[in-house]
């Protein structure tokens, strides 16, 4: 199921910024001209982006690919620190390099007929490509999309264009149902009878979705986020505890089978100022 991470050769690609716009306060969409990555990337994979040279921050930042259009790849990002702030200021024409595509993709089994995608906030980013690809392969797609407020429902148009059903949830009730996206998962598991669930979002949300899927007996894939340095499996910064030991989010993940994950209390605040 999971491709051998050593089998796929990765390399650097120099990518030109084609477009960089603010979607809402603190959330941006950047489009890169990246023909090789665009050709190779599978849904759920990410790129490890070097945003600036000669800056006081030196580490790359991992971003999942939201969508591919020809030679162009789309990245949705949240401004969380010096790196993403610099990214938000990048002008069209600027060149950055990325390692990638990296990591396991969603790798949904071929015999799936109905998939339920559950996204919280920026967790919608890696699910965009997946929704398109599943839909193109005739898989029925349901999407539960949650965000703090209506403006932050990332990928709403994309999901609405390809999914059979999209349920929107906002914490403040500005759009769709008021409350967390996890509240609609049980009903969708019953109503749509999905044979797979794919979840991404804040760790507490993702965990709840995984537990609900498990309780319903539906296999579940989950994409997890960790602070990351190398991106190629060397530094062991991004480990995720699993039933078969410590795994690296960068090359053994970021997408895992939910039943393999040993959930820990990951403090979401660790990303503040570190993005």
């Amino acid at each position: 199921m999971t491709p051998d991470p050593q089998a796929a050769r990765t390399s650097l690609e120099r990518m030109r910024v084609v477009k960089n716009v603010q979607l809402t306060e603190g959330v941006g969409l950047v489009v890169f001209d990246a023909p090789r990555i665009a050709r190779q990337v599978r849904p759920g994979q990410f790129i490890h982006l070097r945003i600036a040279r000669d800056a006081a921050f030196i580490l790359r930042r991992p971003f999942s690919v939201h969508r591919v259009r020809g030679d162009l790849i789309e990245i949705v990002y949240q401004v969380l620190g010096v790196g993403t702030r610099a990214l938000s200021l990048a002008a069209p024409g600027e060149v950055m390099d990325a390692i990638g595509p990296l990591g396991t993709g969603w790798d949904v089994p071929d015999d799936v007929t109905h998939a339920l995608l559950v996204a919280g906030g920026l967790g919608a980013a890696p699910l965009g490509m997946l929704a398109e690809e599943l839909s193109a392969h005739g898989v029925a797609v349901s999407v539960a999309l949650g965000a703090p407020t209506g403006e932050r429902l990332v990928g709403r148009e994309l999901f609405e264009s390809v999914a059979r059903r999209v349920v929107l949830c906002t914490d403040d009730g500005t759009v769709g149902r008021a409350g967390f996206v996890t509240a609609v998962v049980d009903a969708l598991l019953v109503a749509d009878r999905p044979d797979i669930v794919c979840a991404c979002g804040p760790e507490a949300m993702a965990r709840t979705v995984c537990e609900k899927a498990s309780a319903a007996g539906v296999p579940c894939r989950v994409s997890l986020e960790r602070l990351m340095a190398c991106g190629v499996g060397a530094c062991l910064s991004c480990v995720v505890s699993t039933r078969t030991g410590q795994k690296r989010a960068c090359i053994d993940g970021p997408v895992f089978w939910a039943d393999d994950v040993v959930w820990e209390s990951v403090d979401a605040s660790c990303w503040r100022g570190q993005g």
């Binding site: 030196i58 580490l59 530094c235 991004c238 480990v239 660790c270």
Partner: peptide
């Protein structure tokens, strides 16, 4: 190894506790 977070970025460098 140690629990996470295992790294933190700092000015012109990084902290690790792998």
């Amino acid at each position: 190894g140690n629990p996470g977070p295992r790294i933190a970025e700092t000015a012109s460098g990084m902290l690790n506790s792998i």
